[in-house]
Amino acid sequence: MKVKKIISALALTLAIACAAVSCKSKISDADLKTKVEAAISAEHSDISVDAKDGVITLSGTVGTDTEKQELEKAVKNADEKNVKSVVNNIVVETPQIETSTDDTDLISKVTDATKDFPTVKADVKDGVITVTGSLEQARVQTLKMALDALHPKKVDMSALTVK
Rank of each mutant, 00 (worst) to 15 (best):
V3C: 04
I6S: 09
S8Q: 06
L10T: 05
A19P: 01
A20S: 08
K24N: 15
K24E: 10
I27D: 03
S28W: 05
A30W: 01
A30Q: 08
D31Y: 07
K33S: 03
V36N: 01
A39H: 11
S41P: 02
A42H: 14
E43P: 00
H44N: 12
D46N: 13
I47L: 05
I47M: 01
S48H: 04
D50C: 01
D50Y: 06
D50A: 09
D50Q: 03
G54M: 15
G60M: 06
G63E: 04
E67I: 03
K73A: 15
A74M: 12
V75K: 03
V75E: 02
K81Y: 09
V83P: 06
S85D: 15
E93Q: 14
S100D: 13
T101R: 11
T104Y: 10
D105V: 15
L106D: 14
S108W: 12
S108Y: 10
V110C: 06
V110T: 10
T111Q: 12
A113R: 04
F117K: 02
T119I: 07
K121H: 05
T130R: 13
V131P: 03
V131F: 09
S134A: 04
Q137D: 08
A138I: 01
L143H: 01
L147G: 00
L147C: 01
D148N: 10
D148Q: 06
D148F: 08
D148S: 11
A149R: 11
H151I: 05
H151S: 12
P152V: 11
V155E: 00
V155S: 04
M157V: 00
V162M: 01
